[in-house]
Simulated scan of single mutants.
Amino acid sequence: MPRLLYINEKFGHDATIILDSGDACWISVGKRGVLVRSHRPSFWGGLLGSVFGRKLYQERNIYQALSVAQALAATFRPVPQIKCKDMMLKSFCTAAWRCSSPEQVKAVLNDPELLAA
């Protein structure tokens, strides 16, 4: 079962979820779009994973990111462990929560079929 490492809505909007594979999935939502990266959780990986981790998803158009977030919210049921006020962050975190590996997160977030729904 995935594990929520942290959610930060005070200084930016980001979260880290530890997937079933043991990889960490860092999700950042901001005015400039959405960025999702994967890294191995460790002290240095935690500090630098958001900068040097493998990029799973990036959308710089905030309107397109909102469209993806709405599609994700319609596709996945809410998870009680994810208590975000930010709808976009909550949608992306819920989608990542339902995945067991970074490859699966990448497939779900970049799926053109999902965006058409």
Rank of each mutant, 00 (worst) to 15 (best):
M1L: 01
M1P: 07
L4C: 04
L5G: 06
F11A: 14
F11T: 10
G12M: 11
G12E: 13
D14F: 10
A15T: 08
A15M: 08
A15N: 03
T16S: 10
I17Q: 00
L19N: 02
D20N: 11
S21P: 13
S21A: 13
G22K: 11
D23L: 03
C25N: 14
W26D: 07
W26C: 05
S28Y: 04
V29H: 05
V29E: 09
G30W: 06
K31L: 14
G33Y: 11
V34C: 02
V34I: 12
L35D: 10
L35K: 11
V36T: 00
V36F: 00
V36I: 14
R37K: 15
S38C: 08
S38G: 10
H39W: 05
H39G: 03
H39R: 00
R40D: 05
R40K: 13
P41N: 02
P41S: 08
S42T: 12
F43S: 06
G45S: 04
G45R: 02
G45P: 01
G46K: 06
G46T: 07
G46F: 11
L48A: 10
L48Q: 02
G49W: 01
G49N: 02
V51C: 07
F52S: 13
R54A: 07
K55E: 12
Y57C: 08
N61D: 15
N61W: 01
I62F: 01
Y63S: 15
A65C: 09
S67Y: 08
V68N: 08
A69N: 12
A71C: 08
A71L: 00
L72M: 04
A73V: 04
T75A: 10
F76C: 01
R77G: 04
R77T: 04
P78I: 10
V79Q: 11
V79Y: 01
Q81C: 02
Q81K: 12
K83P: 01
C84L: 09
C84Y: 04
C84M: 09
K85C: 11
M87F: 13
M87R: 14
M88Q: 14
M88R: 12
M88G: 02
F92T: 06
F92K: 02
T94W: 02
A95N: 00
A95E: 03
A95S: 03
W97V: 03
R98D: 05
R98N: 14
C99K: 05
P102H: 09
P102V: 09
E103I: 01
V105L: 11
V108Y: 02
V108T: 14
V108H: 01
L109A: 07
N110P: 00
D111E: 03
P112D: 08
P112V: 05
P112I: 02
E113Q: 13
L114S: 03
A116T: 13
A116V: 09
